[in-house]
Design a protein around this nucleic acid. Structure first.
Lengths: 236, 236
DNA sequence: CAGTGGTCTAGACCACCGT
DNA sequence: CGGTGGTCTAGACCACTGT
């Protein structure tokens, strides 16, 4: 036997994640209880508990006392809450709607290959859309994903929230990402889309999201005309 | 005996936090090991462990295998890393310097009273400063704190990083906060401070920070001329 | 080497949930 | 009521640190 690289609970966690990633356990499904998992894996209940606890903290699982442990299921609401950090002046979360959306597939450009870790001549799906809030245009977005990961995405209807669609229709779970924020002046085309004057200050978000296995899923640029809305960050 | 409202580990945690807040355990200090704490508090080692684990996750403690458990000590570097989320185009963290700073004390205005939970005629300390990075002005800030919490702050020298100063000289530990981001156009005075043209897009941060006991400490507005720098948010 | 935190076990009891 | 996760205990052993 070679040396044990990871603690036992981490090995257990990796095995459980693998069962989610492979589709053996599907979103929303009830998984076995601590005792049964421990018996099946040949470890103690406390070790399984530590693995389940970490996965719950990472929002891969949902545990409810008296009910059981469930694979986390993405919904439009839960994804907006996690990944759309805009709130109005009263602190109420902003829920955007789609005003229009267009999707096309094409050959990956160098920057897209870099952001999505693509090799050679792979193709990508590009989504452009305008989202609104309170009856006004709010954000113009350009989104890029690998076509190999999401076959047919460009041909079907594009829903208002993508991540729950990715999970349910392609088995791809978004677990996190980086978002880089800058302030920019609206250029002519952007100003027209967002119904603001050229040169108006916009909040630009450059987002890269990652999958369960740590690989990049999506590259997105959003330009936001904020109005009375702000982007909220919890510090600490 | 009345009903037990909190789980035992949460009661232990509250007691340990109280020892930090009262100054019995000072920043950087080694605290007793799990076994001694458990014996002194009349609970098991595992219960103490759970309390210490949560406090470590909240960055109140620092645990090092083979060394012991220490009260987290704020340093300029650690505070910039936690609360100053700017990075350059290569992903390197930005460390700002102070170009100039001015502090005055005065009567609290209505908005300041609201943000800092002040009652009647309490006074506040207001700090205005310009911070730079890479030889250029980067952020113009206006900061407001209660003078009762920080007596003499307006008279002394204001360091580049405030939170470690608050911890070491006033026994006040900043544990977290909210930051609201918007994009705004530079007004005349701001443009002069930041050496940009009037109307340039700026990133505005409205920050409210909180203490160990959950009370507000600081109200701050920052106006940032970003250049090639961005504000980074980790999603997930 | 002694002392610390980190892991792992085995079991007990409590609080909550649905039937 | 039975089944679940949540808490709590008591103990063992491992991995790391400084002397």
């Amino acid at each position: 036997m070679g040396p044990t690289l990871l603690p036992l609970y981490a090995q257990v966690k990796a095995q459980l994640i693998e069962r989610i990633q492979s589709g053996e356990w599907k979103p929303g499904e009830l998984i076995p209880n601590e005792f049964d998992l421990a018996k099946a894996l040949g470890v103690s209940q406390g070790t399984v508990r530590k693995a389940l606890g970490e996965m719950t903290a990472e929002k891969l699982l949902l545990r409810r006392q008296g009910r059981g442990t469930f694979v986390a299921e993405h919904t439009p609401e839960s994804m907006l809450f996690r990944f759309f950090n805009f709130y109005d002046e009263d602190g109420v979360h902003v829920s955007p709607e789609t005003i229009w959306v267009r999707s096309r597939s094409g050959a990956a450009k160098p920057k897209e290959r870099l952001k999505l870790w693509l090799e050679g001549g792979e193709r990508v799906v590009r989504i452009s859309r305008l989202r609104g809030y309170g009856g006004r245009p709010f954000a113009y977005e350009e989104i890029c994903v690998s076509e190999a990961l999401f076959p047919g995405l460009a041909d079907g209807e594009i829903p208002n929230t993508l991540y729950d669609h990715f999970q349910h229709n392609y088995g791809v779970t978004v677990t996190g990402g980086d978002e880089k924020l800058t302030a920019v002046a609206a250029q002519e085309q952007q100003a027209a889309h967002l119904d603001v004057e050229v040169g108006s200050p916009l909040l630009q978000l450059n987002r890269q999201t990652f999958s369960l296995d740590g690989r990049p899923i999506e590259w997105r640029v959003s330009l936001c005309a904020l109005g009375d809305v702000h982007y909220l960050v919890r510090l600490g």
